[in-house]
């Protein structure tokens, strides 16, 4: 399922664009993607046994992997309709991710990366429930030679019909 590191430099530098031409600036964004994936995993991995709400996990992710300003801008991201049930069951959320391959833009002083986060809620009594997937988009900036998440969006990824 996840391959946060499978989006390698070689894959990116050799992949043709959708018009068949070679990308003009196929800089690697594997490192940025890896940070975005870790951020998404941390941000969505709520543990209702210890957290006061879904925003706690997002704050942890921002503290570990975000810029100094990110935590303050995440104030409105805490809404999660699944939280009441998670709290009732003292459940935690397990997260796995797949890279979003939709032609991410070239890397410069900033990078864009996204992952599709698959979530399963589990509790100690064996209860288990699959939660809707969330597409997580990150803007990343270079800090001390690495990437940190400067802005993030948790996008609805549901679809109609019988496929989900």
């Amino acid at each position: 399922m996840l391959s946060l590191t499978s989006c390698t430099k070689d894959e990116h530098s050799s992949a043709p664009t959708h018009d068949g031409s070679q990308p003009a600036r196929a800089e690697p964004h594997a490192a940025a993607l890896e940070v975005c994936g870790r951020f998404a995993t941390l941000a969505l991995a709520s543990d209702a046994a210890v957290d006061h709400g879904p925003s706690d996990a997002r704050r942890r992710a921002a503290d570990q992997l975000g810029t100094a300003d990110l935590a303050g801008s995440l104030g409105g991201e805490g809404r999660d309709h699944d939280w009441p049930e998670l709290a009732r069951r003292q459940a935690r959320v397990q997260v796995s991710t797949d890279p979003i391959g939709d032609d991410p833009p070239p890397v410069s002083t900033r990078a864009a990366a996204g992952v599709l986060a698959h979530r399963v809620a589990v509790s100690q009594d064996g209860w288990r429930r699959q939660l809707p997937d969330i597409a997580v988009y990150c803007s990343l900036v270079r800090v001390d030679g690495g990437w940190r998440v400067g802005r993030v969006n948790f996008a609805d990824s549901s679809s109609s019909g019988t496929t989900r």
Partner: peptide, 18 residues
Amino acid sequence: AWGGGTLDGPGLGFGIDE
């Protein structure tokens, strides 16, 4: 705008599309 757009309309992009 990469990463931008919702079911209801356009939205802000990410990375160089910030």
